[in-house]
């Protein structure tokens, strides 16, 4: 499975944020999307998720056949976790499973999902309103994963998580990457280097893959910094 982005352009008034982007993402890899503040990483995700209108661009999912990318193909995990605070974690999952029961590829019980995401027994029937930031983040990621979307967009999801939860999340992402295209945006270079299979830079409105073969981590860091600081 591949995700092909073609001719993607997005302007904010006169500012060209994304300039005729062409890129192909492949299944089984975690892509680390790096870029400076305001470079357009979230805008790129918002375009893929059709949250905002864009000037031009097509997104094609290539499996046995090619077809346009649909909303149901995407799971989008935001940097700020958003969960319905009037529900308990169990109720939220029940609602999600109820309305998606025909589309889910594997049938697991609610508790099995909680265990997969390391959500403790005593937290499962608590209102999401009372969840910590990290716990809300886990719930958000879980709901996005259950639907088993082909493409998973993660917008700085591990920022502000404690080391234990961040490590759990990394393990979860590694465990599911086989059948997914995962695009992971972050500011933290070390995180990108340790978790991601490919490093992609969004700089001056274009996407560039960094060839990391034969490079030590330090050389790779220098190369990324050099590319991002170019005028």
């Amino acid at each position: 499975m591949k995700l092909k982005v073609e001719h993607l352009s997005k302007n904010f008034e006169t500012k060209e944020v994304l300039k005729d982007i062409h890129f192909t993402f492949e299944e089984g890899k975690i892509y680390g999307l790096l870029g400076r503040n305001g470079s357009g990483k979230t805008t790129f995700f918002n375009c893929l998720n059709k949250d905002i209108p864009f000037e031009s661009g097509t997104f094609t999912l290539i499996e046995d056949e090619s077809r346009p990318l649909e909303l149901s193909d995407i799971g989008y995990v935001l940097s700020t976790p958003n969960v319905p605070e009037f529900l308990t974690a169990r109720e939220f999952l029940k609602f999600f499973l109820d309305i998606n029961q025909n589309q889910l590829k594997e049938e697991k019980s609610i508790d099995e999902y909680f265990e997969f995401m390391h959500i403790e027994l005593e937290d499962r029937d608590k209102l999401l309103k009372d969840y910590s930031y990290g716990m809300k983040n886990k719930m958000q990621m879980l709901v996005n994963m259950i639907a088993n979307p082909n493409v998973l967009l993660l917008d700085e999801p591990l920022t502000s998580l404690d080391v234990v939860v961040a490590e759990e999340m990394k393990q979860v992402l590694r465990s599911i990457k086989k059948n997914h295209i995962i695009i992971f945006s972050t500011h933290i270079m070390e995180l990108a280097l340790s978790l991601c299979d490919e490093i992609v830079l969004l700089n001056h409105g274009t996407l560039t893959k960094i060839d990391r073969s034969h490079l030590t981590d330090q050389e790779l860091k220098d190369k990324i910094l050099e590319a991002l600081t170019e005028a």
């Binding site: 909303l71 995407i74 989008y76 319905p84 309305i99 709901v143 996005n144």
Partner: peptide, 21 residues
């Protein structure tokens, strides 16, 4: 404030059938 603000960030919630139901 208490529901759609968070739920609309999920792709499944924005599907026409979910919105209309």
């Amino acid at each position: 404030m208490n529901c759609d603000h968070s739920m609309l960030t999920y792709g499944f919630y924005r599907e026409p059938k979910v919105i209309l139901n």
